[in-house]
Amino acid sequence: MVLRIKILSGFFILALMLSIAGFWSIKELRSIGTSVQNLLDENYKSINSAKVMLEALEREDSGILLLMLGKWEEGRKIISAGDSLFQLGYNIASSNITIENEKSYIEEISKDYFLYKQTWERPIVGTDREGNITWYFDKPHKQFMSVKESVNKLMNLNDKTMFDTASELQNRANRAVMPGIVAIIAAVIFSLIFTYFINYFMISPIVKITNSVTAFVTEGKNYNVEIESKDEISRLSDSIRTLCEFVKTAERKN
């Protein structure tokens, strides 16, 4: 194989090792950025919407208790505001389905909230439900707890995913750093081997050839250099040997 290819292949391999490691590190770092963004955009958004829904439910529960005390106007006002807030939270959560099974959790909330809403949509003030604590614990409170549990489930799901993603980020960071470390170590070892080969198969034979030619010229010693490789240096050595033999023959003739 020609010297040029031998030398170039060494540099090419070095460049390839380092550039792939660099490219990979950049890719992993970018994916860390994306993961952090997803963490904020997707999971945090859903957790926030769940918190809004829980706040709305608490307000609606207070509204029901006011209605049971006969305070129609205050009760309805609080319930109405709570319902609007719940719808707001629900809409955010339902438009931000990013996790497997998250849709089923949203549907469960919707179903439970529908049943809960039925308990306070019908009149309370002026009916047998006013002041009826047994009815409250049997119907609205039971349903309130049920919706709350469904919302908590959604929040826990997003919490868990957020934790998993954060743990995965640690792995990603490792994956971003490790190719660089491996590439540097590999490149150092590769350079040492490359230098050894260059020295053994190129520099050392050239020194040997130079010394032998000098010895031939100054002391008349035979040219005696053995080259292991089959490249330009071995051909150069063969040519010099031929030249030396030619010179010696010419000298003998003269």
Partner: peptide, 23 residues
């Protein structure tokens, strides 16, 4: 995938290079 592919590249680099130089 990328970890295995990169490891393969490192192994191949260290494997092929001596074949080019050493008879």
């Amino acid at each position: 995938f990328s970890t295995l592919l990169y490891s393969s590249l490192i192994s191949a680099s260290f494997g092929f290079f001596p074949l080019i130089f050493v008879p």
